[in-house]
């Protein structure tokens, strides 16, 4: 089952027109292009997409974060760091940032933990395994706004079955009125939407652990629980680390559709994430300067987060 990369044996020369292919267990092989411009030509489409759709807008956001501009673009005034100080001193921004942090931690933790639990259990199912797996995976195909729509039907104040269910325990759930209840619904819907992705990756990770290792562990250790934490879990760590990054990004950015549907585009006294606030101020409120300042802050934050993730966490991950 090893990947095989054909190599024409003409490997020579120096970087950058050499590609290194890491093939498990094999020696490193080299591929050379005929022209030294060819690799750049292959990179060009990707790089131009990055430049046009990311670098240019990002630079534009940085520029307009220092200006106050009327929406129609007749005039713009340089205001220095005013947009940033206005944002950072607003009590509401602190509240939104706090919610975003809690929301991200909860969504990431529960969608990873539940997916891992389901994957471990599904891996052990002997009969009708693929049926279970398919049932667990299908949600992956649901688009976030649709997931949000299903969610608000279940959580509807007037007709939602989950609201009726909570009422059995004396919990008068009011989505859209009560801050906590709305946060709860957002977390549940976002976790539900994300579990299948994590499940698919964890399951393939589990299936990649070799039988011999598992059998050896079975002999050495009787406790399934301990076996999981000392053998299976470390071997899943590369998958887990990759999913951690994917899930943090998901909670930060991709939950936009779910939040928008739950709020019905009326924020009111409801929790919103930082990304949603950028949209509200920029696209609903036409405050381009303020909105740009917020997206620059967000960019910085994600940048720092990425460094932390790779510096601190990846060191502890063991790649076999």
């Amino acid at each position: 089952m090893r990947p095989h990369f054909p190599c024409d044996g003409r490997c020579a020369g120096s970087a950058p027109h050499i590609c290194h292919l890491h093939v498990r267990g094999d020696t490193m092989k080299k591929v050379q292009f005929n022209s030294r411009w060819m690799p750049y030509a292959f990179l060009l489409p990707q790089l131009s997409i990055v430049a046009i759709f990311f670098l240019w807008p990002a630079a534009e956001a940085v520029r307009s974060s220092f200006y106050l501009e009327d929406p129609f673009g007749f005039s713009s005034t340089f205001v220095g760091f005013d947009n940033f100080t206005d944002t950072l001193t607003s009590s509401n921004y602190a509240r939104v940032a706090q919610f975003t942090a809690v929301f991200t931690v909860l969504v990431t933790f529960f969608s990873l933990a539940l997916a891992l639990l389901l994957a471990v259990k599904a891996d052990k199912v002997l009969r009708a395994g693929s049926t279970y797996k398919t049932l667990l995976m299908w949600v992956y195909a649901v688009a976030p706004p649709v997931a949000g729509l299903i969610g608000i039907l279940l959580f509807d104040q007037h007709v939602g079955p989950l609201v009726d269910f909570a009422a059995l325990f004396g919990w008068k759930m009011q989505i859209g009125v009560n801050y906590f209840d709305t946060s709860f619904a957002m977390v549940v819907i976002s976790v539900w939407k994300q579990i299948p992705v994590n499940f698919i990756f964890f399951l393939s990770g589990l299936q990649g652990i070799s039988r011999s290792v598992q059998e050896a562990a079975n002999i050495d250790c009787r406790s399934g629980f301990r076996r999981f934490w000392t053998v299976t879990f470390p071997l899943l760590a590369p998958t887990g680390f990759f999913l951690l990054i994917i899930n943090v990004t998901y909670a930060f950015f991709d939950t936009f559709g779910i939040i928008d549907v739950v709020l019905k585009t009326e924020p009111g006294n409801n929790p919103v994430t930082l990304v949603y606030k950028v949209y509200l101020d920029g696209f609903r409120g036409n405050d381009l300067g303020g909105s740009s300042a917020q997206s620059v802050l967000l960019m910085l934050f994600v940048f720092i987060l990425t460094i932390i993730q790779f510096r601190l966490i990846e060191r502890r991950v063991h790649y076999s």
Partner: peptide, 30 residues
């Protein structure tokens, strides 16, 4: 101007009054 955002602030603060998170005078001051 920026009245859409001012409406959002009203909805947020009055919503807080009705859910018991704040009192009326604090809400209007905010």
């Amino acid at each position: 101007g920026f009245y859409v955002q001012i409406r959002d602030v009203m909805n947020r603060e009055l919503g807080k009054v009705f859910s018991g998170e704040t009192d009326v005078d604090t809400a209007f001051d905010t």
